[in-house]
């Protein structure tokens, strides 16, 4: 049984540590916030200028001046802090954020990531993704193991334009978890979803990894 979106998010949440400052991308990564272990404190950063993201507001407390990077209305916490975009990316680029979880279209065996454009399609832009993968201490990618056509997404080298070169530390898919010790080491298959076999993963992965 492959992991569903929530189970993938819950798996990513296991990488959180007490005291971490974390930036979560849009989509499945956002769900990671629902699985922060009760016994640790994690501070969520929003790159539009906030530390300490609170839950969605009550309907009568919606504030247009208080949104997350996905442009959704949010709430603040007693420990929240606001700052401008230059300082926000100073935090990100300067290596002060411990962990980011983001989606991807492709990840390569050397840690390259592509998640911002498909040639020939309307380009929306990279937003803060290139800054995040360049600056955050640990980069976790959460994505489906294969595309809608069944093509592998963890591959020998990216075919799409890169978001970052040799930056990914961990890949969590609906089938498996791959991790590497550092940016010079190969990825290692460290976990499989229940009932998924090593053969199935090998058949659906073209990237080289250590099993």
């Amino acid at each position: 049984m492959p992991w569903n979106r929530n189970e993938m998010a819950a798996r990513a949440a296991k990488e959180l540590e007490d005291g971490f400052y974390v930036n979560l991308g849009i989509g499945i990564p956002t769900l990671v916030a629902n699985y922060v272990p009760q016994d640790i404190t994690v501070t969520l950063q929003s790159e539009n200028g906030m530390l300490g993201i609170g839950p969605f507001p009550y309907p009568d407390e919606v504030d247009p001046d208080l949104i997350n990077a996905g442009k959704q209305t949010i709430s603040e916490l007693p420990q929240s802090a606001y700052f401008d975009s230059a300082q926000s990316f100073g935090m990100i680029r300067g290596g002060h954020i411990d962990l980011t979880v983001l989606g991807a279209m492709e990840v390569a065996e050397n840690g390259d990531i592509a998640n911002w454009m498909i040639p020939g399609k309307m380009i929306k832009g990279m937003g803060g993704a290139m800054d995040l993968v360049a600056g955050v201490k640990k980069i976790i990618v959460v994505m489906e193991h294969t595309s809608k056509n069944g093509d592998p997404k963890f591959i020998p080298s990216c075919t799409l334009p890169l978001t970052g070169r040799n930056v990914v530390d961990m890949v969590i898919t609906d089938l498996a978890v791959f991790q590497r010790a550092d940016h010079d080491s190969p990825f290692r298959l460290v976990e499989m979803a229940p009932g998924v076999t090593a053969e199935e993963i090998a058949a659906k992965t073209t990237a080289h990894y250590v099993s």
Binding site: E47, D84, S85, A86, S88, F89, G90, I92, R93, D112, M126, G127, G128, A129, M130, D131, A134, G135, P161, L162, T163, G164, R165, N166
Partner: peptide, 27 residues
Amino acid sequence: PQGTLAERMRAGGAGIPGFYTKTGVGT
């Protein structure tokens, strides 16, 4: 990139015509 854009504005305002960043290397 969003952080590069913010820093390009900040730099311009601070009299800095250019700066080096790792954002976007290899892209």
